[in-house]
Amino acid sequence: MAEVLHMPGHAPGQIGLWHAGSGALFGADAIHDGPPIDDRPGTSVADYRQTFLRLRDMPVGQVYDGDDPAAGHERYHAILDHYLGLWQ
Rank of each mutant, 00 (worst) to 15 (best):
Asp81Lys: 07
Gly23Arg: 05
Gln62Thr: 14
Pro35Met: 13
Ile37Gln: 07
Leu25Cys: 04
Tyr64Met: 06
Asp38Met: 12
His19Phe: 13
Trp18Lys: 05
Gln14Tyr: 06
Leu84Phe: 06
Leu53Ile: 05
Asp38Val: 12
Trp87Phe: 13
Tyr48Arg: 01
Ser22Arg: 12
Pro12Asp: 11
Asp47Arg: 05
Val4Arg: 11
Gly34Pro: 08
Thr51His: 01
Gly34Ser: 14
Gly34Leu: 03
Met1Lys: 13
Gly34Val: 02
Trp18Thr: 05
Gly66Gln: 12
Asp47Lys: 09
Asp33Tyr: 00
Gly23Lys: 04
Arg54His: 06
Ala11Trp: 09
Gly23Ile: 02
Ser44Lys: 03
Arg49Ile: 05
His6Asp: 11
Gly9Ile: 04
Pro35Leu: 10
Phe52Asn: 09
Glu74Leu: 14
His32Arg: 15
His19Arg: 12
Ala70Thr: 07
Ile37Tyr: 09
Tyr83Met: 01
Leu17Ala: 03
Asp57His: 15
Gly85Pro: 00
Met58Trp: 07
Pro35Phe: 10
Gly9Asp: 01
Pro41Val: 15
Asp29Lys: 12
Asp38Lys: 03
Pro8Trp: 01
Asp29Ser: 10
Gly23Ala: 08
Gly16Phe: 06
Ala28Gln: 07
Leu5Asn: 04
Ala2Leu: 06
Leu84His: 09
His82Gln: 12
His19Trp: 07
Ala30Gln: 10
Leu80Ala: 08
His82Cys: 08
Asp33Cys: 03
Asp38Asn: 10
Gly85Ile: 00
Leu84Ser: 07
Gly23Ser: 07
Val63Asn: 07
Ile79Tyr: 00
Gly72Gln: 07
Ile37Cys: 10
Asp68His: 15
Tyr48Glu: 02
Met1Cys: 10
Ala78Thr: 08
Ala24Ser: 09
Tyr83Trp: 13
Ala30Met: 14
Asp29Thr: 09
Arg56Ser: 08
Pro41Lys: 12
Asp57Leu: 13
Gly34Ile: 05
Pro8Tyr: 02
Gly42Tyr: 02
Ala28Tyr: 08
Pro41Leu: 11
Gly66Leu: 15
His6Cys: 02
Arg54Gln: 07
Gln50Thr: 13
Gln62Leu: 12
Pro12Arg: 13
Phe52Val: 11
Pro35Lys: 14
Gly27Ile: 04
His77Ala: 09
Ile79Lys: 05
Ala28Lys: 02
Met58Ser: 10
Gly9Trp: 00
Glu74Val: 15
Asp47Ala: 15
Pro8Asp: 04
His77Arg: 15
Arg56Asp: 04
Phe52Thr: 02
Ala28Gly: 09
Pro41Ala: 14
Gln62Ser: 11
His10Asp: 02
His6Glu: 06
Glu74Asn: 09
Pro69Cys: 05
Arg75Trp: 04
Ile79His: 01
Ala24Phe: 10
Ala30Gly: 05
Arg49Cys: 01
Ile31Tyr: 00
Gly72Val: 06
Pro69Gly: 05
Met7Val: 13
Val63Met: 15
Ile15Arg: 10
Ala71Tyr: 07
Arg40Val: 13
Glu74Ile: 14
Pro8Arg: 03
Ala46Trp: 04
Ala30Glu: 01
His32Glu: 06
Ala11Thr: 07
